[in-house]
Simulated scan of single mutants.
Amino acid sequence: MSETSMSQALVANNLPIPGAIGSLDAYIGAVYRIPVLSAEDEQALARRYRDEDDLDAARELVMSHLRFVVHVARGYNGYGLPLGDLIQEGNIGLMKAVKRFDPDVGVRLVSFAVHWIRAEMHEFILRNWRIVKVATTKAQRKLFFNLRKSKQRLGWLNAEEVRAVAADLNVSEREVMEMESRLSGRDIGFDMTADDSDDHAPPAPAAYLVAPEEDPSQAYERTDHEENQLELLRDGLRALDERSRDIIRRRWLDADNKATLQELADEYGVSAERIRQIEANALKKMKALFAA
């Protein structure tokens, strides 16, 4: 949902929007004018949605909490991503929370939804903050957000602070230092400078990074080696008897439909152990050819 479509959603629900429809400020102003639900109304709407699948009740629950999404999104302004996009992702988390909310647990929707809202925003930040992902595992994501918060307060971490962060988040000091290095890095264009007309700009990585696979001699050597290995494989198969060759081909070379020992045993009328022995002997002969 874009900034415009978020505003249009409010229009579709007969909610007044001041100013231009496509304005993020207008959207924020409108959602802050939506009344906050009382605990009793929230419970009633949640039960209507859960028990009767009442989409109007779900919509009202979502609309009444849009202001909270804006509040959470503003807390991530320092990541350099558009506020409208953060709000959009947070709204998705809010809708997921409403879908899973159980009014019988005894907590307000806002307390339950905050985790879903933040989760969607975190995923968006990690997908878009760098060209290369800075965090891929759950532990790294937790470290990313906690460490960035600490760095904003402390700047570069000293050895004692690294130990404290590692102990607090239950990770190694090496992981803390590696994540700090990622946070301090920046994206660089591979094949051009920020301004091609700047004669004093440093060279782009394409000018000095080595690509061995592009070297003609190495490419030829690699291709020749691969062709030689294929020819040895063909020679090895030709040296086998027909049954052994069929077993090796179906056990090792048919990647999409690999036969089992029992399937081959049933086909040849012998035991699975006998098929295994034939396979082992055939591989031994082929390995000897490769080693020669």
Rank of each mutant, 00 (worst) to 15 (best):
S5M: 13
S5D: 13
A9N: 12
N13C: 12
L15C: 03
G19F: 09
G22S: 13
S23D: 13
D25P: 01
Y27N: 07
I28C: 11
G29N: 14
A30W: 02
V31Y: 03
E42P: 07
A44T: 15
A46Q: 05
R47P: 01
Y49V: 00
E52S: 12
L55M: 11
D56Q: 14
A58K: 13
R59G: 08
L61Q: 06
V62D: 06
V69S: 05
V72H: 00
A73N: 06
R74S: 03
G75Y: 09
Y76D: 00
Y76I: 01
P82C: 06
L83H: 14
G84C: 08
G84R: 02
D85W: 10
L86Q: 05
Q88L: 02
G90I: 03
N91H: 10
N91Q: 07
M95V: 10
A97G: 01
R100Q: 14
D104W: 06
D104T: 13
D104H: 10
V107F: 12
A113P: 04
V114L: 00
W116A: 13
I117A: 03
R118A: 08
E120D: 04
H122V: 08
H122G: 12
R127E: 13
N128H: 15
K133N: 07
A135F: 08
A135Y: 03
T137P: 10
T137E: 11
K138Y: 11
A139H: 10
K142I: 05
K142D: 12
F144T: 08
F145A: 03
N146S: 14
K149F: 10
S150V: 15
Q152M: 12
G155N: 02
N158Q: 09
E161T: 10
R163G: 14
A164I: 00
D168C: 08
N170R: 11
E173D: 14
E175K: 07
V176K: 07
M177W: 07
E178M: 12
E178W: 11
E178S: 13
L183A: 09
S184A: 15
G185R: 08
G185V: 05
G189H: 14
G189M: 10
F190M: 13
D191Y: 10
D196E: 13
A204V: 02
A204S: 15
P205E: 03
Y208S: 06
E214M: 11
D215T: 08
Y220Q: 11
E221Y: 08
D224F: 11
N228C: 04
Q229E: 10
L230M: 15
E231I: 03
R234G: 00
D235R: 13
D235E: 15
G236Y: 02
L237W: 07
A239F: 07
R243Y: 04
R250W: 05
W252V: 11
D254N: 15
D254K: 07
D254C: 09
T260I: 01
T260V: 00
T260P: 03
L261H: 12
L261Y: 14
Q262A: 12
Y268Q: 08
V270K: 02
A272W: 05
A272N: 01
I275S: 09
I275N: 06
E279V: 00
A280Y: 02
L283H: 06
K284R: 14
K287I: 05
